[in-house]
Amino acid sequence: MKVCVTAQGDNLQALVDPRFGRAKYFLAVDVDSLDFEVIENVNAQGTGGVGIQSGRLMADKGVECVLTGNIGPNASDTLKAAGIKFCLGATGTVLEAVEKYKKGEMTLSEGSNVDSKSGA
């Protein structure tokens, strides 16, 4: 199972980036082996629609679940259409977020928790 965590750095010890659309990196982590792929978010500096772009990127990478801090309505619509689940309110390091997810301590969210234009 592959989850994707928004990160401020390019390794498992990096802190979770609270924003989805404008996250610096995405770390696609295999929850069992902890193998991971670093995806740099080339859209982070875009002017509009970044949440949609990041959502599309998740779909392209075959991600099943996203762990992040906040998510906006456009990104949430895109992920839902792609059938990708997401958990909000992730904090600490990427590894901590993945561990919490594995223990079932993160709840799946139904929709966005911030408005558009927030970079999330």
Binding site: G48, I52, A59, D77, A81
Partner: peptide, 15 residues
């Protein structure tokens, strides 16, 4: 160029 469309899964979304 305005990222107003997403084609994901089996859906076509317009923002």
């Amino acid at each position: 160029v305005y990222n107003a469309i997403a084609v994901v899964g089996k859906k076509h979304l317009v923002f």
